[in-house]
Design a protein around this nucleic acid. Structure first.
Lengths: 206, 206
DNA sequence: TCCTTTCTGTATCGATCAATACATAAATCG
DNA sequence: CGATTTATGTATTGATCGATACAGAAAGGA
């Protein structure tokens, strides 16, 4: 391996964590290299040597987010006893996570880069992949619910996953607009309260 | 008035409409003055004389959006016979509106400027005001539903408005991620299917 | 007609952006 | 030791950003 050469003067992990926090708070476009180098405590050449480019640094930061601050939201998706319990827990964890003091509000994967024409496609696609992975995880969980018998046969799992994902994504917007934890919790409870009827009605759409 | 001086060489309305389309498609940050002047068919000094600044032009463009492309979504909010019908209609119009061919997908008010630290506060606040106005309109509509008797006494109108707003905002994310009209319609139908049970359960939150 | 007013086109401003050239410092290898 | 490799700090690059200075053109008012 390469233990040769002058050793690094900073912790790559800590620097990446600082970048994550900054991207999460300010978004990809609004975070400049000046911001990054100051927060990470290093100079531009060190940043480029360690991370390649601003875009690659961002993608690494999003991965870190998914493994740390953003992970707890999804902790019980698989272990919850039923699909309904999994969704209710997911949304309540979302409400709690999105309103922690001292942290940026809402989800980095939803908010930190606008999915707009003209944006860096590398960056947008990375976030889109993260979002769709979670939506697929929801769909799979609902399919398991059908297999487990806590969802009726014929449940449109993809549609319900899109519904839950849409609601959870919207909660990031609400959080950034200043919604309180109580408001977000109420949203979670609304979804849970309508769950059984929604599932029952969705089997025959019309 | 001021009919003096050299007359304008372009239609202010048409130029504003072009700017709106561009901001809607690319977002505020990703739309440069070069993009704008090209699409609007004028030179920078004319743009600044007519609209003041990029930020003010954007705010005017958002207002235009709310009066044109974004308006139809909310057309039946007040005229629908019940709160439930109003929400179902709203979400189905949303699904239709967000997947029109030849137009950018999703809502300009939700997508076109990230609500992030470091963004132009003038721009962010203008969009936030638009979002909250619609959420308040939902809350008022639900209060009317209580008065009309199609929602039970004690319905938490603010919480349910936050739920519907959150879902509708999330549909913009889904739309930009490529969701089909059928998927968005399914989301709308999910919400409608669970509505009665959600309302009934929400009266006593626990 | 001449003056004032307003708009237009050219050309460019200073600021900021992401990214690097370059020389030096600090480590391993032979 | 000397050679190689890698990281660091200073200084700067070309590009692009939003916004304007300036002079000329086109209108109304006197």
């Amino acid at each position: 391996m390469s233990s040769r050469g002058r050793p690094r003067n900073f912790s790559r992990e800590e620097a990446l964590a600082s970048a994550m926090r900054l991207f999460w708070d300010k978004g990809y476009d609004n975070t400049s290299l000046t911001d990054l180098t100051q927060a990470m405590g290093l100079k531009p050449p060190s940043l480029y040597a360690a991370f390649g480019s601003k875009a690659q640094l961002f993608i690494e930061a999003v991965d870190l987010y998914g493994r740390t601050d953003g992970a707890g939201i999804w902790d019980e998706l698989e272990t919850a006893p039923t699909a309904k319990a999994a969704v209710h827990d997911l949304l309540r964890r979302t409400a709690e996570n999105f309103t922690r003091g001292g942290e940026p509000r809402g989800c980095m994967v939803v908010l930190s880069a606008p999915q707009m024409a003209g944006g860096d496609p590398e960056v947008c696609d990375a976030l889109k992949v993260h979002r769709l992975e979670k939506q697929v995880a929801l769909e799979r969980r609902f399919e398991r619910g059908v297999a487990d018998g806590d969802l009726p046969e014929g449940t449109p799992c993809a549609a319900i996953a899109a519904y839950v994902a849409s609601l959870q994504h919207g909660m990031s917007i609400e959080a950034r607009d200043g919604a309180t934890r109580e408001t977000l919790m109420a949203i979670a409870d609304c979804a849970a309260a309508g769950w059984d009827a929604m599932v029952a009605a969705s089997i025959k759409p019309n």
